[in-house]
Simulated scan of single mutants.
Amino acid sequence: MGGAPELGRVSGRRPPFKYSALTRVWFSDTDAQGVVYYGRYLPYFDHARTEYHRHLGTLSVAGAEFVMRASAVEYHAPARFDDLLECFVRISRLGHTSVTYDCAAYRLPDDVLMVTATQTLVLVDPVARRPTPIPESARAPIRAFEGVDLAE
């Protein structure tokens, strides 16, 4: 935040997704078979999720932090060195203490679906290490951006 450039963009290309970030497959992201190592998609989705929250102005919640609770990933096609990926992200569910994200990575320019994921993060108090309610100051921008596509 604080005037930092946004590395993602609002997009209407793949409803219900409304936001995406671009990423390039670097050589270090590939395995001995020449394809993206399966674990590298998680940082791609982390990047998209961070830029999504930068766009909404909800990059951090004072006095609390989000931690990963669950992550389910499905691989549809192999990406290779130098591919350009558009990683879409959305909040599909906003719970009392948790947020569920849907993610999808498409290769550009041919729009082939590479990977989909669902991730749930929980807001925790960093001292007590216990779930804490998501404040209205973080909920309101998400509701306004996701609109009717958001489950609560």
Rank of each mutant, 00 (worst) to 15 (best):
L7A: 14
D149G: 08
A138P: 00
A140K: 12
D125R: 06
V73F: 05
G63C: 04
T23C: 13
P109H: 06
G39I: 10
Y38W: 12
M114R: 10
E86P: 03
R13W: 05
A151I: 13
G3P: 04
T58P: 05
V67D: 05
R40H: 15
H76E: 12
T23W: 03
D102L: 07
F88Q: 05
S60R: 14
R93E: 12
A117S: 13
A77C: 08
S98Y: 08
E136F: 04
L113C: 12
L150E: 03
A117Y: 00
S137Y: 06
F66M: 10
V35T: 14
L94I: 03
A144T: 12
A79C: 08
T116L: 11
G63L: 02
S98C: 11
G34I: 12
S92Q: 13
D82W: 07
R49S: 12
V35L: 05
Q33D: 11
A21C: 11
V73P: 02
P16T: 05
E86S: 10
V89P: 00
G8T: 09
V61Q: 02
L85T: 00
S71A: 15
P16K: 06
F88S: 05
P109K: 07
E65Y: 08
D110V: 09
V112D: 10
D110I: 05
P133S: 06
A21H: 01
Y75K: 06
V127I: 12
R69G: 13
V115Q: 09
H47D: 03
A72P: 00
Y19A: 04
Y106S: 03
G2Y: 11
D31F: 09
R93Q: 13
F145Q: 00
Y19P: 00
S71K: 03
I91E: 10
G63T: 05
R130K: 15
P43Y: 11
S11A: 08
L22Y: 08
I142H: 02
R139P: 01
H55L: 11
P5T: 12
V89Q: 00
